[in-house]
Amino acid sequence: MNAPLRDKSYFDQRATQDMAKHLQSAERSIQETMAYACRILAMTEQEAGLAGQISFRSKREGAYWTLRFGLGFDEATPEDFIEVDRDLNTLSGEGMANPATRFHLWVYDARPDVNSIIHTHSPWASALAAARQPLVISQMDMTPLHNDCAFLGEWPGVPIADQEGVIISKALGNKRSIILAHHGYLTAGASCEEATYLSVYLERAARMQIRAQAFGPLTPVNDELAAEAHDYLLKPSIVKATFDYWARQTHGVPSLAVK
């Protein structure tokens, strides 16, 4: 005799409890986490010279941590992160911030829930940006971005002044990612791990969209099911376990090993 079908919420609750018990994330300093994030971005081929940026909200008001300017993602070590104030004066560490990280300040001001920002000119997301195409959520692996990826249709120029920060933060709104036309993308996470997770999946989603379009128009995933998948795949335990896996992968490539 077949057992009665149980509601999906039962399995969701059970999986959540099991993950809390068995998926224990690694303990790292924020500088170590940011170094791993940079190496993960490099491993997933998201570098574009010195255009990529990563930051983390500091405990000091109006300040943030970022990779010192002049280094690529693949070179980052925990010692290479500096703390800067609202005028990009260096408060901790040695070196200067990428001047284009100034717009991060505006996102942090507008979004108290955001603690980390990643911005890159990655190949596939930049291709969507060049074509001025918003993301279409048409496959399960895209669903962490469902109703969570904004689109800015005009390029405000190199974001080294305040006005670009106003425009980008307003366009981002309450979402965790955005495609910037003629530019690249940005992800904004509650943690560095979440911002990195969204970055990797956004680049994959862009690649999938461009490839799938060769076969015809895209069909969006059912809205209700996509929303359910979004929330499930963004569970902190899944995000952090995935980040830890990618971090272990960087150790498998000698040139990417964090020093």
Rank of each mutant, 00 (worst) to 15 (best):
Y201K: 08
R132M: 02
T242M: 09
L225P: 12
D7N: 13
Q13P: 04
K8M: 13
R248S: 12
Q13C: 10
L202N: 01
E203P: 00
N89Y: 13
P134T: 02
K175H: 05
L233P: 05
A3S: 11
Q31P: 10
L135Q: 07
V221C: 14
I168S: 05
S122K: 03
F56M: 10
Q213S: 07
A212N: 09
M34F: 11
E203A: 00
G173V: 00
R6V: 04
A51Q: 06
L186N: 13
G72I: 07
A205M: 02
L234D: 12
P159W: 08
P144E: 01
S29Q: 09
E47M: 14
A3L: 14
I210V: 09
R211G: 03
S191W: 07
H104P: 00
T250Y: 05
Y64G: 07
L218Y: 06
I118M: 05
F81R: 04
D7H: 15
A214G: 08
S122A: 11
D87W: 14
A229W: 14
F81T: 04
I160Q: 03
P236V: 07
A181Y: 01
L186Q: 10
H104L: 12
Y232L: 14
I167S: 02
T33N: 08
V107I: 14
S58Y: 04
E83I: 07
F73W: 05
A247T: 13
R111L: 00
E32R: 09
T44R: 15
G252A: 08
